[in-house]
Amino acid sequence: MLTRRRLVWVAIIVVAAGLLAFGAGRDTGPLTQQDRIDTITKRIACPTCDGESIYVSRASASQSIRAEVARQVGDGVRTDDEVVAYIADRFGGEVLLLPRATGVDALIWVLPVVLTVVLVMALWLAFRRWRLASATTTPVQVASPSQRRRSLAIGVVLTVVVGVAGGVLVARQAGQRLPLETSTGGIEDSTASILAQARLAGPSDVKTAIELYSRVLETDPDNVEALTYRAWLVMLSARQFDEALRAQAFASTVTALGRAIQIDPEYPDAMCFLGIVVYRDGGDAASAKEFVDRCIERDPPVQVRGLIDALAKELDAELKP
């Protein structure tokens, strides 16, 4: 029989061994950026070869993804899971070495458990039937067909519930859940997204477009596209109002476009719009021509060029000595 003192010693040894085991087995996480890169790249499969992670693959696509992972780790903005999610978002779920626990991928986790439960249930039923058949000495109470159907239905429901629940549990413990996953593909609602929405709204819904550009400028006051297109839309809308309002809009538009050009002297759209506004609303052909020429030199996109081509000819004609 153990004495009290020995019991204390046993308790101390058990606790110490437990703590040692916990400390040795605990995942402290990556220590350096390179550790993080290695950890992440071991979770991603090479998209152009079989059975290799991008950590070991020498394929060109793997090298590009490794470089992207290194860039994102270096930026320090995304977590490991978010970096993996970004890559999976671009290349598809098949590049995940650990399948996701969502959508169709979750079947990988759920099905084995369901099958195991079904097999266990089937075996149990078979053994039960054999036992009943061999028990000839005691009279067996035979169940009615309706009772058998009910038992079968309950058995099936229980099997499916236990299997699915077990599968979900396994998936939760082991499956990859990625933070950027959404039903639409997980593209973030970024400045680029708001700018694209503003652009889409622009011609038909000027008010919404101006609001969206203003939203961008709240978080990024130097966003050249938002500054330029908000100013342009404000001027276009003001043209239907009285002289005083037009003059006010003209002043604010010229200021905003001037600021956009100051921030990015290579942005052609701001120069083209300034040229148009200075001529159409300010009547200054010489300044307008200067802006229009600078815009054309910088190869504006097709839609802006469409606005400026006719004006350039008009200005040339007006300024002809």
Partner: peptide, 23 residues
């Protein structure tokens, strides 16, 4: 470094992408 390819999820070439005037 293949940054544009990764951004678009291009693993093998050739691949062609179309972007509209609204971006």
């Amino acid at each position: 470094d293949g940054a544009i390819a990764v951004t678009f999820g291009v693993a093998k070439v050739p691949e062609t992408w179309i972007i509209d005037p609204n971006g």
